Amino acid sequence: MATPPPGANLEGAPPAAPPPPGTDMTGICFRDQLWLNTYPLDRNMIFDYFTLSLFYDRTCNNEQLRMRSIHPLDISQLSKMTGIEYMLSEVMEPHLFVIRKQKRDGPEKVTPMLTYYVLDGSIYQAPQLCNVFSARIGRALHYIQKAFTTAASKLEKIGYVDAENDGGTPLHSKAGKETIDLKEVKRVDQILASLQRKLPPAPPPPPFPEGYAPPQTEEAEKDPETQQTAEPQPPAIDPIIDQGPAKRMKI
């Protein structure tokens, strides 16, 4: 049986055009069930399967070796070339294969760019570490700020009720309960408000590696002054929790 064309989907539709360089593809996955039913998924065939996906760059050095009938993962040949290449870094046959995209500038000088993994026949692009840290830190700061706001609002409500009671309004349920010190409440409220003002925003993520550009969002296009005056927004999507393998679009 002939090998399916690159980018073919399960329904047999025409192969999709490869995305432009720098496109974020962490939200999609590729799976060709016809190929998986025909060929074994092992270290000898995994790269042939990877070339069918939209993650594969056909200008890489591995493709040049394939055109010369040389094994595309032959490190003795790849080390003599410069440019973009793919390497099989981790193998747990037949369930997990990790493929690293890197730029080679010499026999011993390579710069990692992106990482892909094949999990039980489905190919995914691993999220950037800077994206994971940025999402986790942003989510933590969001909930910490929300906790401070909730605590401050409850303390203000307690102080308001206590002030009304001191003004002459009797409370039958107040007997036998511990008296609230209004000065202590205000002092704690001031401490919480001071900590909330000192809470720094999420630090900017480190620069992206060469060949990768973050997806443009609507918030990034807004005026910076508008973002400063707006209320705190929910945390950004977590590349691991919110975009796991089960939630990615299949191609």
Rank of each mutant, 00 (worst) to 15 (best):
G106R: 04
L119F: 08
S173I: 12
R136A: 13
L141S: 08
D120C: 14
L141P: 06
F148D: 12
H95R: 10
D162Q: 05
Y160N: 07
K101T: 01
L96D: 06
A126Y: 14
L141I: 06
T150R: 13
T169N: 07
A175L: 11
L182N: 00
L96I: 15
R136H: 12
G168N: 01
G138A: 03
V132R: 01
L96T: 08
I158E: 07
P112V: 04
G106L: 03
P170H: 12
A175V: 09
A175E: 11
G168A: 01
E156L: 07
T111L: 08
Y143G: 06
I158L: 13
T149I: 13
E178N: 12
E156D: 10
K101N: 04
F133T: 14
K183V: 09
A175H: 11
K103P: 05
A163Q: 02
L119K: 04
K109G: 05
K101P: 04
N165W: 03
F148K: 12
G106I: 05
Y160F: 10
K183H: 10
G138K: 00
L129Q: 14
F97E: 04
D166C: 04
V110R: 02
Q190Y: 10
L155T: 03
F97P: 00
E184T: 08
E156C: 02
F97W: 05
D162E: 15
P170Y: 11
Q125R: 10
G159C: 05
R139V: 02
P127T: 01
K103Q: 12
E178I: 09
A135G: 03
P94K: 03
G168K: 00
V161P: 00
L171W: 11
Y117V: 02
L114I: 01
L182E: 00
A152E: 15
G121I: 05
S153T: 09
T115C: 08
E184F: 06
H172A: 14
N165Y: 09
D120A: 09
L96H: 07
A135W: 03
Y117N: 02
I137T: 15
K186C: 02
Q145P: 08
D189I: 03
T150P: 10
H95I: 08
R136M: 15
Q102P: 06
R100H: 12
P170F: 07
V188G: 04
V118P: 03
P112F: 04
H95K: 13
V188S: 05
M113A: 08
G106N: 07
K154S: 15
T149C: 12
A175F: 13
S173V: 12
P94A: 01
F148Y: 15
K101H: 05
